[in-house]
Amino acid sequence: MMLGTLAQRRPPAQGAPEWVPDGATAFLDFVNGHYFAGGAERAVSTLLGGGFDPAAISGSGMRIIGSNGNRPKAIGALFSDLEAGIAAGCTLLFDLNCANPPGGFLLFIANAANLDLASEVINVGVDGYVFDYDSLGFGDTISTAGVHKEGITINRDLGAGNRQYARSNDGSAATTQTVNYTPAVIPINSMLIGHDGVGTGNSLNDVTIRSITLYPAVSPTALAALTA
């Protein structure tokens, strides 16, 4: 599998516990209560803040629905790992259980606190779309309830000033787009999970996040292998 190349990228000094996926730089396992970021195991309360509600986590994962008030944002070591990953290029793998046809923002990255205030964003929709306020806009759509694995590569450096974004769902061949600019959201003000920081209108439509894994940026072929 492609994961062998990922495993070689983990620095031995990182000392990751055995439950961290090979090659991952951060891992939030909501089902089993394991959380890793900044090179160490952490309490989830040090990684998610803002409107995060720990009561939304159960043995099924972390549920986000408009009515439950769970509006987490990345903080602490998780924010730092994501910020560094986006600047260098990274891949995020989401393991999800969708109670309804998917809808809402899975990941909202912005240069301000929320959608109303932001002038630059990268939005990742749970239904498959990735876009920003510049030229980025593509998708690899899912439309069914149930368990899905969604992988997103952000800002992979292809050389000569070109940056690749990619999306794969459930082992599908990755959909990609190449742009000739680095993310304008840098420096990043906020990284919100499952919402855009404004009310409940763009909150996830009853999605339980089972885990989130952060990797260095991988190729489109490796991205499809991660989501299979």
Rank of each mutant, 00 (worst) to 15 (best):
G4M: 04
G4F: 10
T5Q: 15
A7L: 09
R10V: 08
P11M: 05
P12L: 09
A13Y: 14
A13I: 11
Q14D: 11
Q14V: 14
G15S: 01
A16H: 09
A24I: 02
F27L: 08
F30M: 08
V31M: 09
Y35W: 13
A37F: 04
A37W: 01
A37P: 06
A40C: 10
A40F: 06
E41F: 02
S45K: 12
T46I: 05
L48W: 03
G50D: 08
F52Q: 09
D53A: 14
D53S: 14
P54C: 13
A55R: 14
S58G: 10
S58I: 01
G59M: 02
G59K: 01
G59W: 01
S60I: 00
M62Q: 05
M62Y: 08
R63H: 05
I64N: 09
I64C: 05
S67P: 01
N68A: 01
R71F: 14
P72N: 00
A74S: 13
G76A: 12
A77Y: 07
L78M: 12
S80V: 11
S80H: 04
D81L: 05
D81C: 11
A84H: 06
A84R: 15
I86W: 03
I86P: 03
A87Q: 14
A87C: 10
A88K: 15
C90M: 13
C90H: 12
F94H: 04
A99S: 14
N100Y: 09
N100V: 08
N100P: 01
N100L: 14
P101R: 05
P102N: 10
G103S: 15
G104F: 04
L106C: 00
L106K: 03
L107N: 01
L107Q: 01
F108T: 05
A110R: 07
N111L: 00
A113D: 15
A113V: 14
L115I: 12
D116S: 15
D116K: 14
D116G: 12
L117W: 06
S119D: 13
N123T: 10
V124C: 07
V124Y: 03
G128V: 05
Y129A: 10
V130W: 07
V130L: 14
F131L: 07
F131H: 12
F131D: 07
F131T: 05
Y133I: 04
L136M: 09
L136F: 02
L136T: 04
G139M: 07
G139Q: 13
D140Q: 13
D140Y: 02
T141R: 10
I142K: 00
I142R: 04
S143P: 09
T144G: 02
A145C: 06
A145I: 01
G146E: 03
K149D: 00
K149N: 12
I152L: 11
D157H: 00
L158F: 11
A160V: 11
G161Q: 08
N162F: 13
R163Q: 14
R163V: 08
Q164M: 15
S168K: 00
S168W: 05
G171F: 12
S172Y: 00
S172M: 10
T175M: 09
Q177P: 02
T178H: 09
P183D: 06
I186N: 06
P187W: 11
P187E: 09
S190T: 15
L192D: 06
I193E: 00
I193A: 07
D196C: 11
D196T: 15
V198F: 03
G199F: 01
G199D: 00
T200D: 12
G201F: 11
S203M: 12
D206N: 14
V207R: 04
V207H: 02
T208F: 03
I212D: 05
L214V: 08
A224I: 01
A228K: 11
